[in-house]
Amino acid sequence: MPVVDVGRVCVKTRGREAGRLCVVVDVIDKNFVLITGPKTLTGVRRRRVNVRHLEPTDLKLDISKGASDKEVEAALRKTKLYTAFKRAARLPIEDVLKPAHERPSLEST
């Protein structure tokens, strides 16, 4: 099971917000969490999602349970993530979609 806890930075993998960065704000039960982009930054609305539709990253924000969008943004501003959130609101996945032989290897990057 992925580690999805409050403050965890995730990427949505399903739906119209797929590929966008978001932050977990609350854990509702073992299947659902409350997330937010916040919308002004990454376009992800404050909403309930199935954890199966999230891909967790190793990044975590220092926010309290049920933090507002403003609080999340403030927490983001404290870290280096703010610009990353603004710039890479949606992860570019073109390189991953290429066939294996055309992809740059991990060694070279």
Partner: peptide, 11 residues
Amino acid sequence: LETAIKEKVRL
């Protein structure tokens, strides 16, 4: 799409 995004995130 999901597998591609997951792959990218892990990358």
